[in-house]
Design a protein around this nucleic acid. Structure first.
Length: 488
RNA sequence: CGGGGUGUGGCGCAGUCCGGUUAGCGCACCUGCUUUGGGAGCAGGGGGCCGCAGGUUCGAAUCCUGCCACCCCGACCA
């Protein structure tokens, strides 16, 4: 069999689709815009979810679950929020089907029309704040730190597996606080949690920053974001954390009595990451041979391939290695399939992104060695059997670090400061990536830049430095550089 | 919703223009033998309402009409 993956240089978009399908991550379903997440893809999402869940709990949050359906009227309570989501909602209008009196099949029973339509949640602020109203009476009830793992539906025009699907899996944190300062701190904290997860677990470097007014979440006073750079030079918004001020508290009348027995509106945050992260993971590390996974998120970290096939002597060595590795917390599989030849298995495990592959044949056993192949660099070496498990533990660490450093280097090479609009356009055209440029701060200019170049304002970096300059488009005074890029 | 395209075994396609045996091919799948240190070879085998519904015709994957679905490019978005 030849290559099954389209080369990135040939067609990046096709490459991405090939990775997703051929690495058994997901496939298109019978439902428009919705994917089936297959076991391998789901296993990666599970690893992400477990780690994030732990990090949320370590920062004091608890999980709960709110309904899939939201009464239509709830959505209109917060003006900007409805504006942002109304155009992409799935709506439930009836609750019953009947057989078609004129023929075969089923029709919607017109008698079963709902008095109030239900929206399939595109996000849960409204239903949650309507609930919080009953949960919060006193400052003693605050802060309320709740997270939900859920599916949501946004009826997008165009979809791409993991990056933008009609239904997607995510978590949404919704917290309530007594003061503005505390809520702002919470939102910033969660941005840091996301950044830490992205960098330490996904080995995906991110820029932490805040969104421009135009790019802000519908209903937020401030949106913090983590922005990653994909291999094709496009940015991916990988996670957002919003300071919602008292907007939802006012819309849903959520007040509390403070220590002085005075009524106040509650301050809110919400924050989320989704299965989109899986797409980001793919586009950060993978190559033309298939998926490349950071060891910390790889469902199987080490695979052992018997050469040419299982045999008592090889089995014994493999069992011993597996036992040692498992004792060290490494997930390992022994590929005992007798029908596939070694070469096929090598290619297959590379396609699936297994970080380390061990090859063991009689030749190796005689020499007291195993063949160690790392997925990130595709290097192969022979290592002594003695002490192999410690070697692998170190190697997994090394791979994790190497992937991160490689991605950082790519991002550094693809981040360009420009001082005029021609350079701005040229850089976008020729090498793409992040562009650091002065901007006059107006939404009008931001939109104009987007219209002219398709690059959007990604964020105002948290480490924004004051620097006198001129807006790259209008020449008006600017107080510092922000990041632009074409984005997913 | 605008522009373009495609619907043929699980997947990828040929055949359609110009109607005519039993609808082919590659991959995958099943069986057997030989292989096995980078995607094995040979032999045999299973699997199709040709997107759906009408129509034209002695005869339709092929021509006509209508519908549906999906993909790509735009506007929207995590």
């Amino acid at each position: 069999m030849a290559k099954v993956i389209t080369a990135r240089s040939e067609d990046y978009s096709k490459w991405y689709g090939d990775i997703v399908t051929n690495a058994n991550m997901a496939e298109h379903s019978a439902v428009r815009g919705c994917m089936v997440i297959k076991p391998h893809g789901f296993a990666i999402w599970e690893k992400m979810r477990d780690q994030l869940d732990k990090m949320f709990k370590d920062t004091g949050h608890v999980n709960a679950y709110f309904p899939l359906f939201i009464p239509k009227s709830f959505l209109s309570r917060e003006a900007e929020h409805v504006e942002g989501f109304a155009k992409e909602c799935a709506v439930v209008t009836h609750h019953r089907l009947m057989s078609d009196p004129n023929g075969k099949g089923l029709i919607v029973d017109p008698e079963a029309k709902l008095e109030e339509e239900l929206i399939v949640r595109p996000t849960s602020e409204t239903i949650i704040w309507d609930t919080y109203k009953n949960w919060i009476n006193s400052y003693r009830d605050l802060p309320l730190l709740i997270n939900q793992w859920a599916n949501v539906v946004r009826w997008e025009m165009r979809t791409r597996m993991f990056l933008r699907t009609t239904e997607f899996l995510w978590q949404e944190g919704h917290t309530a606080h007594a003061t503005r300062e505390e809520a702002v701190e919470e939102a910033k904290q969660m941005q840091k949690v996301y950044a830490q997860f992205a960098e330490e677990w996904m080995a995906m470097p991110v820029i932490q920053g805040s969104k421009t007014v135009n790019e802000r979440f519908a209903g937020a006073e401030e949106t913090w974001t983590i922005e990653a750079l994909m291999q094709d030079g496009k940015a991916l918004q990988a996670g957002t954390s919003h300071f919602l001020a008292q907007n939802f508290a006012k819309a849903f009348d959520v007040k509390f009595l403070n220590e002085n027995n005075k009524e106040e509106y509650v301050w809110a945050t919400s924050w989320g990451v989704s299965t989109r992260l899986v797409g980001g993971l793919i586009m950060t590390h993978s190559d033309d041979d298939g998926l490349v996974l950071p060891p910390k998120l790889a469902p199987t970290q080490v695979v052992i391939v018997p050469i040419p096939k299982p045999k008592v002597e090889i089995d014994e060595v493999a069992e011993k290695i597996m036992k040692e590795l498992r004792a060290k917390g490494v997930s390992v599989k022994y590929d005992t399939d007798k029908k596939k030849r070694p070469g096929f298995k090598f290619a297959e495990h590379e396609l699936h992104g297994v970080p380390v592959r061990l090859g063991i044949g009689m030749r190796d056993i005689e020499n007291g060695q195993v063949e160690v192949a790392r997925r990130d660099t595709k290097e192969k070496t022979s290592q002594p059997l003695e002490g192999i498990s410690s070697y692998i533990v170190d190697l997994l660490d090394d791979i994790q670090n190497n992937l991160f450093n490689r991605a950082v280097q790519f991002r550094t090479e693809h981040t360009t400061s420009v001082d005029n609009f021609d350079d701005f356009k040229n850089v976008l055209e020729e090498k793409s990536g992040f562009i650091s440029a002065h901007w006059d701060g107006s939404t009008e200019t931001e939109l104009k830049i987007k219209e002219l170049t398709k690059a959007s304002a990604r964020c105002i970096p948290n480490d924004f430095e004051e620097e006198e300059g001129k807006c790259v488009l209008t020449g008006k005074p600017s107080k510092g550089r922000i990041l632009f890029a074409k984005a997913y």
